[in-house]
Write a protein that binds this DNA or RNA. Structure first.
Lengths: 265, 265
DNA sequence: TTGTACGCGTTATCAT
DNA sequence: ATGATAACGCGTACAA
């Protein structure tokens, strides 16, 4: 502990603490002695003690629906790498798309004293927001963005994106649409994407019956089956708005959704 | 804090602490009062203080090479889910297959006071092991297993697996082998897989020239290109030991590697 | 620039 | 069963 280092270096614990946290406020002479002592004793600061004394944990948290989606796995890794440079650690939790589990995870993270927390999407239990506000824990909703969100958020404006995609397809002359979407249960991003399409079509008086919107799991095989089902039921379809398998960052440049605007088959 | 709850419930902080941690040692009467107070004040324990006093953080850490590999993403998620039940949190770090970064990450985790740590593979800088032993932090190497490992480890015995696969191919009559492998740089699992094949072939006096072993990135496109290159260079090849894209748990049942034992093309 | 000493919020020991 | 109180290891006014 600090005391050992202090004794070894022949200084006070305060000085050791300073050399570690505010090196400028220490003379070169003493600084050197302390640093030697630190190495000699392989001193490792006690995070909990430090957190208790300074009231900050040097840890942040993120809770994602799942890591099985490449999208989130990559986001988590990116965050961790960014944090690494600042000697901040990342507490990870996953909710399995279950709001209750998410609440529990957030609570655990708050208990651990994270200095900030990242969530996915904008829809969370009121208790989550209450807890965060109550404990004054900064938070941000990711993978989501709307101009008028009441919460801090960063990400794709899914609704706007699909609105634009749909507009393009309309301009190309398409009139017969359908959507292969992700399950919208506890997934506001997926819901927003559908909403964007509906809004655009409605604005242009193009019909989109519920049967043309298929919500299926994010597996390639499910998407394939859905497409087949759609075309079997309505061969007249010329435009399908669908997801795309997650690949490299480059291949994602165009946004959250891919539009197929050529004749199928 | 505890004191507030204690005051509200009209008991000492010690009693509050007990009702929270050792409910049995508290009378039903008092327990009820305390629990009401806790809810009324939305009390949330201070993790750092608790860690400092009890000398355990209720946190564990894992450092993986990357989350971009579905294999690791899934492992991390599985660990997190398992921990969730025990109200343990997971500190996540990724090393990008860089031993130095890994050392740094481990150091950060130790600093945070994790109660235990999981690594990937068996090959780590000596300093990593020294640090872990020095600070008495329990650790385990995952995605790796050999009977005689000097370190605690759990996972696939890659060498044994590929040895057996190769044996099967030999028994089927194959004599002309090649391997499409992952980069073995800082990846003892990949190295072990190759070693297993070599060992088996050597034992049966079958040659495998270095040019028949291609180490390429874990992308489907890279694997495809490698296969093409191999067959162009040596059409006589009848068996290729290669990786396979990560899918669902079910499809992984057979082990770490896939063997192609039919004629190609 | 350096040292002293108190406080951070719990747990745990020892009385009661 | 419950309470008083001393650690836990460090940061940080405040003093020197």
């Amino acid at each position: 502990m600090l005391a050992d280092v202090a004794r070894y270096a022949g200084v006070s614990t305060a000085t050791v603490s300073r050399t570690l946290n505010e090196p400028d406020k220490v003379s070169a002479q003493v600084k050197a002695r302390v640093q030697t002592a630190v190495k000699k004793l392989t001193y490792v600061p006690h995070g909990a003690a430090r957190a208790l004394a300074s009231q900050r944990s040097h840890a942040t948290g993120i809770v994602v629906p799942t890591l099985r989606a490449g999208l989130f796995a990559e986001g988590v890794e990116a965050l961790q790498r960014r944090l690494e440079g600042s000697s901040y650690t990342l507490l990870l939790a996953s909710s399995q798309y279950d709001p209750q589990i998410e609440l529990k995870e957030v609570h655990t993270l708050v208990e651990q004293g994270v200095d900030g927390i990242a969530l996915v999407g904008n829809s969370h239990l009121q208790q989550v927001y209450d807890l965060l506000r109550g404990k004054r824990v900064p938070y941000i909703n990711t993978y989501f963005y709307t101009k008028d969100s009441p919460h801090p958020c960063v990400g794709v404006d899914n609704r706007a994106a699909t609105y634009r995609l749909t507009k393009i397809l309309l301009d190309l002359g398409h009139q017969d649409f359908s959507i292969i979407a992700s399950p919208t249960q506890n997934n506001d991003r997926a819901a927003e994407r559908i909403a964007g399409v509906r809004a655009c079509l409605a604005e242009h008086d193009v019909k989109l019956s519920p049967s043309r919107i298929l919500e299926v799991p994010n597996q390639i095989s499910d998407g394939r089956a859905a497409l087949k089902a759609l075309l079997d039921a309505a061969p007249s379809i010329t435009a399908v708005l669908c997801r795309r398998p997650f690949r490299s960052p480059q291949s994602r440049r165009c946004g959250a959704t891919k539009a197929v605007d050529h004749r199928i088959r």
